[in-house]
């Protein structure tokens, strides 16, 4: 009973003191708003970078050139062997005969058409191929080597050299954006904690009197914890609105892509609510922790 009375009073006091210490509350809330907006924007960028690199990695494929000596049986058994390799995505192993390739090339280019139309099937110097997609793009080199060692494979190509560099760059960007978000969250935490500490410092006297008249530590701490949470929650409202509406309208204005068709934006419905929830969580938790740790200092004698 008494416990609930303390909780009830703490929540009531939290609202009261946010109002009573209005200017300091505004300072804290503003600090929370600014830092959380930055976190929100960073999260949107990170989600998009991740999405983009993941998509590009999925598009990477290995072209397997099959020896012209291979008969139909060899070709089918080769497909089974390729699909059996660990990192190969068995749903994405497609066969393209040299006749099909010839057709394709002739469609695309007049000069090719003129030359190639003279070839009959036996003269066609092109090779039958398999287009193979991999599960883990980072292991594309090893997979390519494994395929090359199979019988009747003359050559494999996956853009050696360039792909490795591209992958390294992607991995770097992904890692960097991840670290940047973590760093931002840490900085935000410190900023919010420090501002809240300032507001609590100004109420040192109040705390010391509470202690003097025999308030237990927990009943001194609770109102401040709720107050911190309240500041965090109030401070996260504006960033959430900005992130949700901002990203929705950005997506509309840009038609879902950034400058080129290659870089498509992640549809807002997939991420904004996750980000919103995350912002609210950071605001509330950091606000609570901040004030709890700030009050703690004044409860030691």
């Amino acid at each position: 009973m008494k416990f609930f009375r303390i909780i009830g009073r703490s929540i009531r006091d939290a609202f009261k003191s946010v109002k009573r210490n209005f200017s300091l509350s505004i300072a804290s809330i503003t600090c929370v708003i600014i830092t959380l907006i930055i976190v929100g924007v960073a999260l949107i960028i990170t989600f998009n970078i991740n999405d983009f690199t993941t998509k590009l990695k999925k598009d990477l494929s290995i072209v397997v050139f099959v020896s012209n000596e291979a008969d139909n049986f060899d070709i089918t058994s080769l497909e089974t062997q390729i699909k059996a390799i660990d990192n190969v995505d068995p749903d994405f192993v497609t066969y393209q005969s040299k006749a099909e390739i010839k057709e394709d090339m002739m469609k695309n280019n007049e000069t090719f058409k003129n030359i190639m139309s003279a070839w009959d099937d036996d003269e066609n110097p092109l090779q039958n191929t398999y287009i193979v997609k991999v599960i883990d793009a980072n292991k594309i080199g090893e997979t390519a080597t494994a395929i090359k060692n199979l019988a009747k494979v003359t050559r494999v190509s996956y853009g050696e050299g360039m792909v490795e560099q591209l992958l390294m760059a992607f991995n770097g960007v992904q890692k960097f954006s991840f670290i940047a978000v973590i760093a931002l969250v840490v900085v935000t935490t410190f900023l919010i904690i420090n501002t809240i500490k300032l507001t609590i410092f100004s109420r040192k006297r109040e705390i010391s009197i509470m202690r003097l008249v025999g308030a237990s530590n927990i009943s001194i701490k609770l109102p401040f914890v709720f107050e911190g949470m309240l500041i965090g929650i109030i401070g996260s409202i504006l960033p959430i609105i900005l992130v949700v509406y901002g990203y929705y309208s950005l997506f509309d204005i840009m038609n879902g892509k950034l400058l080129t068709d290659i870089f498509t934006l992640v549809p807002p419905s997939e991420i904004v609510f996750k980000i919103g929830a995350f912002i609210l969580l950071i605001g509330a938790v950091v606000g609570m922790l901040g004030s709890a740790s700030a009050v703690k200092k004044y409860l030691k004698v």
């Binding site: 006297r205 010391s208 308030a215």
Partner: peptide
């Protein structure tokens, strides 16, 4: 050691509120 933003009544009541008096 009074709280300047509270009235006389509130200053005294503060002591009781702080210890969770009904």
């Amino acid at each position: 050691r009074l709280l300047p933003k509270l009235t006389v009544y509130e200053n005294v009541a503060f002591a009781l509120e702080a210890i969770g008096e009904a």
